[in-house]
């Protein structure tokens, strides 16, 4: 392995790759639930960045990055609940979760 690849760089690269995979999924899939899965992957990539910077940053005892990641996990859980509730509600009205077939907001 290359000598200049320090641990933080490795974690940041993995996070960037996860973010790109999640973005590709969110932009290309038709199913609304798969788009939510892509968004969850992007949020997790951001959490990995926060934790990695907390671990290798100058003041880990201040807990800043750790706290940010924990709050981000909580907000992501709320987002998943609301998003999946909306998908179920839309499916009840239109009998589809295909995003290309959804073109109106009226119930």
């Amino acid at each position: 392995m290359s000598p200049h690849l320090n641990p933080l760089t490795g974690y940041l690269l993995v996070a960037a790759l996860l973010f790109a995979i999640g973005l590709a999924g969110a932009l290309t899939r038709r199913n609304a639930i798969l788009v939510l899965i892509g968004i969850e992957l992007m949020l997790n990539a951001a959490n990995l960045n926060l934790i990695a910077f907390w671990r290798y940053g100058p003041h880990p005892e201040a807990l800043t990055g750790m706290m940010f990641a924990i709050f981000s996990i909580a907000v992501a859980a709320a987002e998943a609940a609301v998003g999946l509730g909306l998908v179920i509600s839309i499916h009840r009205h239109t009998k589809t979760t295909d995003l290309d077939a959804m073109n109106r907001m009226k119930g």
Binding site: A16, L17, F19, A20, I21, L23, A24, A26, L27, T28
Partner: peptide, 11 residues
Amino acid sequence: LFGLVTAAGIF
């Protein structure tokens, strides 16, 4: 293809 190109560019 549009989504793939966007994601690859961002990565």
